[in-house]
Design a protein around this nucleic acid. Sequence first.
DNA 1: CTTTTCTACTGTATCGTTACAGATTTCCTC
DNA 2: GAGGAAATCTGTAACGATACAGTAGAAAAG
Lengths: 343, 343
Amino acid sequence: MDNKRISGSNTQPTPERPTLKTIAFMTGLGITTVSRALKDAPDIGAETKERVRMVARQLGYQPNRAGVRLRTGKTNVIALVLSIDEEIMGFTSQMVFGISEVLAGTQYHLVITPHSHSKDPLVPVRYILDTGSADGVIISRTEPDDARVELMHQRGMPFATHGRTNMGISHPFHDFDNEAFAREAVRTLVAKGRHRIALLQPPGKLNYYLHTQIGFQTGLREYQAQEVPLRASTDTTLADIKDTVEALMRSPHAPDGIVCSSSAAAIAVNAGIEAAGFRLGHDIDMVAKQSTDVLSWIRPEIIAINEDFRHAGRELGKAVIARIDGIEPELLQSISSPIWPKG
Amino acid sequence: MDNKRISGSNTQPTPERPTLKTIAFMTGLGITTVSRALKDAPDIGAETKERVRMVARQLGYQPNRAGVRLRTGKTNVIALVLSIDEEIMGFTSQMVFGISEVLAGTQYHLVITPHSHSKDPLVPVRYILDTGSADGVIISRTEPDDARVELMHQRGMPFATHGRTNMGISHPFHDFDNEAFAREAVRTLVAKGRHRIALLQPPGKLNYYLHTQIGFQTGLREYQAQEVPLRASTDTTLADIKDTVEALMRSPHAPDGIVCSSSAAAIAVNAGIEAAGFRLGHDIDMVAKQSTDVLSWIRPEIIAINEDFRHAGRELGKAVIARIDGIEPELLQSISSPIWPKG
DNA sequence: CTTTTCTACTGTATCGTTACAGATTTCCTC
DNA sequence: GAGGAAATCTGTAACGATACAGTAGAAAAG
């Protein structure tokens, strides 16, 4: 180590970092022995191991990551591939924190690999694969037929996805049960006497669009309500959502119930409703998903269901690590159910 | 590289990754020559460099990070130290994205180093220093006398802080001008005929608490308004903020203006005001800071000032890198001013 | 007492890169 | 034409760790 650091005026000489060599010298053992002792290898004497461990602990020894990585190829890195666009309500940070919580107890570091989702989403994944810069990958914004999943599967890279896929590949995932959400949302609205229901759905190419649709349609059928078409998605700008909803509310076929897949969109929907002269809880009811409790502060009448992204992060973190350790993907798939207020 | 990957049924043999050796073999040159050619060293012939570059590009050569790191000590990593608690409105992700944007054009990777801010905030910093796991560090939640700044300065670790310090150490930072915000907020309220003003301020130990205070007091003096004490901070739970504000509004010394340092808190403040039977824009006005445009959707009467965290991320990213490159800290300090609506 | 077996430990090579100290060839200079 | 400088290129060692193929010594087996 050439120990290049900025040489400020009062910079202290950093004390040399201990290596296996240091421990070997102090214990009088060979470097190999020390290495194997710390790994609890079977061919090292019990007392020797104890001694080595003591000295290592005493020195505050931490294996050099570059050394390990160079020799073994193990990076001890989990890469989180993130789209840096959109994302108004900032649930991403919650997911990062969830993953971090899990990694904190391990040797893994979390590396953020961003990409603009206007560009080819394969780019960051290919980079990770080609440079071998991570032991495992977490991706979100999963599509039903996702090229990233295909690629990582094919190259044998452990990964977990936020959201399911539908392409015959078994892999770890965590998902929110959007189907149940949409279905139960319809049920709740019907229970309040609403029968003409609109859905503000996720953008079409993402996988949970499908689940939301299926759940919504099932709900309509099951609880005998009608769909009122709404020409907008949660990716539409808030201003456009408001205008669209306002126009819809003013039209002869105004809905009396709305299901909304995002809290930011719900705010805009509410604005549209009020701009048209209607009031939530009176003329119309809304069920909406939120990642943090804002909606009740805005209009307590909104029926808000929480999607816990921190929990998702934890699940995804645990899943990739388990996958790296060779656990079968089938055992690493979880879905969290929306929790409904009484009844 | 022992090339250990999960051995799925249809896993393809990953094509060998090119190294300097590969290029050396293909060009017929020595490894050293190739290394130096790619570094554009002065003792390599122009034509040789050209040849090496062509072959390298052809092969898609990317230097092995572990090799470089082991040999030179350069990690090509920027560590972002984050508190994983709190944070309702999720501005953190915006900062991450801003940093990512800047790093995207470089060799640097972004590693998230979390810590629970109930624990000792020095722990993650010490870890980074002791293990040399980053070339530069970004920290937030800066305190006026910040032990992390002290430590990194002393150990010669390049870093940038979100928020200034006040301890005689010159270092890169980016900050929002909270002093101007609070001062101008008072001015704006006074211009609307408000003179009895309350401040919902940041928690006391953080540095921007001071700036907010100073700006607020200056504003009161300059524009001749009175302070109405408010016993809460932006770290208080939303429910408590609401209750406190409601009680205050019901009391004989109710304010007619409020300055609020966070958008989440502003929502609670508004709820408190309305619960007491008052209305924004009529009986009272509020100026609040937000990181994303929510407030205007909730009550257009709220005078909202944007703090751009993505911009902060970009500035901080650029600053650490420049500092790593040896630029003087004095040149790496920036403050962004609140932008006021006309007048 | 020799041979085998087992336990406990160790030296060497290697991962990919770069610093450093040569080495070779060409071209001046006097 | 000898000496030296300049321009190019190269081999070796080292960063810290681990896989592998040993070795030394004691104990068991014959």
